[in-house]
Design a protein around this nucleic acid. Sequence first.
DNA 1: GTATTACTACTCCCTTTGGAGTACGGCCTT
DNA 2: AAGGCCGTACTCCAAAGGGAGTAGTAATAC
Lengths: 224, 224
Amino acid sequence: MIRIGIVDDKASNRNIIKDKLERTGMFIASLIASDGSDFLHKLRYVHATERPEVVLMDLEMPNMDGVAAIAAGSSLYPEIKFVVLTIYDDEEKIFKAIKAGAYGYLLKDESGPQIADMLWQMCESGAGPISPGIAHKILQLVQKNQLTMVNHHKATVQESFFDLSDREQEILKLLVQGFLYKEIGAQLNISPNTAKKHVINIYQKLHVNSKAQAIKLAYDKGML
Amino acid sequence: MIRIGIVDDKASNRNIIKDKLERTGMFIASLIASDGSDFLHKLRYVHATERPEVVLMDLEMPNMDGVAAIAAGSSLYPEIKFVVLTIYDDEEKIFKAIKAGAYGYLLKDESGPQIADMLWQMCESGAGPISPGIAHKILQLVQKNQLTMVNHHKATVQESFFDLSDREQEILKLLVQGFLYKEIGAQLNISPNTAKKHVINIYQKLHVNSKAQAIKLAYDKGML
DNA sequence: GTATTACTACTCCCTTTGGAGTACGGCCTT
DNA sequence: AAGGCCGTACTCCAAAGGGAGTAGTAATAC
């Protein structure tokens, strides 16, 4: 039996969720609150043995919203897994909730059994439950460069993608600027023929067959 | 019936995947390749009507790995959905694959029916399929690695600078995709000559004189 | 040593592009 | 009705690009 906390400002929501989860026989709602402030207050006065292992948290709530509650709660009780359960799927809310320390993010339009199942999976595998649509949005955030990895790979991207030599990368950069072969040759003090030869080699490595495609690829994959 | 591409260097893997998917009756493997290079080569010579809508891509492969293949492929064929299917779940591979343009990321330890189901879900809902464990790792990436969110309230910029007509903008978009005049003509049901005429007119309005410069300008000024 | 790879520089051949000009029908505005 | 833009479609010409091949040199790898 897994102890669950439910935080939602709508009484009907609380009851529906409680019902659906308890009916599976795998969960018991050990703490129910109507907003973030209420939740933290109740959590303080509950015995550690009664503390929920998982908290389902709505986002939009009076007094203290879900993001703030997760931020405070995950800091005070790091062992509790906070899972957002909401109707909102916009990028900003997702992002903020995750940064606040959310362990999972579920949408209310998932069916009851599905939510129960995902929570159970979480307890089994340790992987935070995430609704498919949300996962997709996060992935797109990463993709669109709205998220960038700061620490690690400092984005000499083409190096990791394609196996271009230094010279070839140099020439690709000029190509993308829109220079002609003769101009590239002039800038690098090589024959236009050689410049062209390099470009053809680059095309083969990139599997493209025109300047336009090469430029598009370079821009798309961020080899500026 | 959804056309699927399978790219994996192990013949046994290819066959297993092909079998499991085709047995569902929902998919047909229309393109099978043994590495990224082989894949791109085959894709080039296949008719657009035979192109796979979804490509399952392994990551570690000889010649050209999955990340490079996705990077090139997703740029050349933006309509194809590339889904990683691999045994690797380390953050770097996940991150690189996503940046390269992966639409989903599945682990090979998912069961066959489950993979088929997730792919089907993708085609229904449009949300990229992501194994739970992977979703969790992505979420943790967001959480810990100081990923920054760039505000997407950017200037809805200036087709107003360059006074391009609707038709010209339409053609510019295709031009940036890397299409030839004849291809543009075919897509819009006009003569290649007309397509070219439009392009020349566009050049004059943009004050450029080559495809490369036009593409660079379009990207730089964000008319995507 | 040899083999390989990168860089250099050609050749030949064909396609695509860029620039110029002309032209015609449709539509809108004056 | 006339002048304008737009979209359509052609011509001719010259420049640039794309593909394939050969080839020498230098540095690196086995």
